[in-house]
Design a protein around this nucleic acid. Structure first.
Length: 410
RNA sequence: GCGAAUGUAGCUCAGCAGGUUAGAGCGCCAGAUUGUGGUCCUGGAUGUCGUCGGUUCGAUUCCGAUCGUUCGCCCCA
């Protein structure tokens, strides 16, 4: 595929036919769930200033250093296609002073962009559903956020056996810093035994050694001190409160002391929903609390809690069945009759398609391509008596009736 | 960015240890019937064998590069 090809860029996907329908239905389910939890929809621009993402995600995070679509626009501004949804939401909250009325619960969905190697459940343009809660910092909000995520997953008819909530805490900012240096101390004794990649992480982001998949690391990680033991009492109590409320609500969870998140801004509770039906991209919904993000971006002292789900991954495991209108093929030798009937049926809420011509056999045959539920025949005889032939294409039963009566016969 | 597999008709795939016109199934189109079924029947179309280059008398087949896809790593939803 050369540069002169008009075909799509690498790592992107056309959402067509059933896939487009599935996306639309997932959106509806998401919005419905969010509404029940009193979230308000927010739609932020697809592109923002580069600095908006650079600052919170960390200058040397992978997302910033190699995955962002950043370019200069005609005015010379550094523009970035959003790689995630939280920073733009926070930006909007600050810019529009939405924090004056708390709690503030916002949800969003739409495309995100990351320049990564495409893989199963991973694209360069992908879609996320996200929810953010801004309020007084409280374990209630964490639980509320996780419950909503859980309801969303349930509504998507994802097999309950196939996914699980993994949860951990990073403590507050001081805990996190303290634990990071503790980890460094611990691993420095075994530095030579670490995998090559983890030796790099040792310097860049020691926390990430914890979710390494290298066998030599896994051995060492087993005996690593847990942050849950080393963080301050306040954070311990906070996490305990979250856990006990999850239990009260019957949420199946697993405390995972090695769970860390890639994004720099998380503090306290972090969680991931993982599926066994996905390959190595097993996390399909994840999030946590961020105490300092709002302030970092120039807003007031305000803690937030949020999560995001990746549509492309969710689509691989969800089994939603969209409701659809009954489809009727209107078959007639008269265009006038066909359009009139179709118009009437559409007003009644049916999905109607017309097939006009001489041969009823050919028309019926043609109509079967769109898999209609019913066929309505209007020919010379029906015209005289002002009736129609209504055929159920599943049962093959056919009755003579009137247009007005079709509603009662389908 | 690293590693591996793969690319033949709209789809799923066969084939060629290098040799005239490259195949199957499904799908598609047309016909038959002419006021009712996808089956059945008859006929038909379709490919620069991903792209570029090399080896060769000759390449879809071998080699290299490149692009795409898939799977893992990294990273992340």
């Amino acid at each position: 595929m050369g540069q002169d090809s008009i075909y799509k860029q690498r790592g992107v996907k056309d959402l067509i036919l059933d896939e487009a329908k599935n996306y639309q239905e997932t959106v509806e389910i998401f919005l419905k769930t969010a509404e029940l939890y009193n979230f308000k929809l927010i739609e932020t621009p697809i592109f923002e200033k580069e600095i908006l993402f650079k600052r919170p995600l960390g200058d040397d995070s992978d997302i910033v250093t190699k995955e962002m679509y950043t370019f200069e626009d005609k005015g010379g501004d550094k523009i970035t296609l959003r790689p995630e949804g939280t920073a733009p939401v926070v930006r909007s909250v600050i810019e529009n002073r939405l924090y004056e009325k708390l709690p503030l619960k916002l949800c969003y969905f739409g495309p995100m962009f990351r320049y990564e190697r495409p893989q199963k459940g991973r694209y360069r343009q992908f879609h996320q559903f996200g929810a953010e809660i801004f309020s007084e910092k409280s374990p209630f909000q964490d639980v509320e956020g996780i419950l909503m995520a859980h309801d969303f997953i349930k509504s998507l008819s994802i097999n309950p056996e196939s996914f699980k909530l993994h949860i951990n805490s990073l403590g507050n900012e001081d805990d996190r810093k303290r634990y990071t240096s503790l980890l460094k101390q611990y691993f420095s004794d075994y530095f030579d035994e670490l995998s090559e990649i983890s030796r790099l992480r040792f310097h860049k982001n020691p926390l990430r050694i914890l979710d390494s998949k290298e066998p030599e690391d896994i051995k060492l990680i087993e005996n690593v001190p847990s942050i849950l033991d080393t963080m301050c009492q306040e954070s311990k109590d906070y996490f305990a409160a979250v856990i006990s409320m999850l239990e009260q609500n019957g949420i199946n969870y697993e405390i995972d002391k090695c769970l860390v998140r890639g994004l720099d801004y998380y503090t306290e509770t972090i969680f991931e929903f993982k599926s066994t039906e996905l390959g190595s991209q097993s996390t399909f919904l994840a999030g946590g609390r961020y105490d300092n993000l709002v302030k970092l971006l120039g807003g007031p002292e305000l803690s937030g809690f949020g999560w995001a789900a990746g549509y492309e991954r969710v689509a691989l495991i969800s089994k939603i069945e969209g409701k659809k209108n009954k489809l009727i093929a209107v078959i007639s030798d008269s265009a006038k009759d066909a359009f009139n009937a179709a118009k009437f049926l559409r007003e009644e809420g049916f999905c109607a398609e017309v097939f006009i011509g001489e041969s009823f056999k050919n028309l019926l045959k043609k109509s079967l391509k769109i898999s209609p539920d019913f066929a309505v025949f209007i020919g010379e005889n029906e015209r005289k008596t002002n009736t129609v032939q209504l055929k159920n294409l599943t049962t093959k039963e056919q009755i003579e009736t009137k247009l007005e009566e079709i509603k009662n016969n389908t």
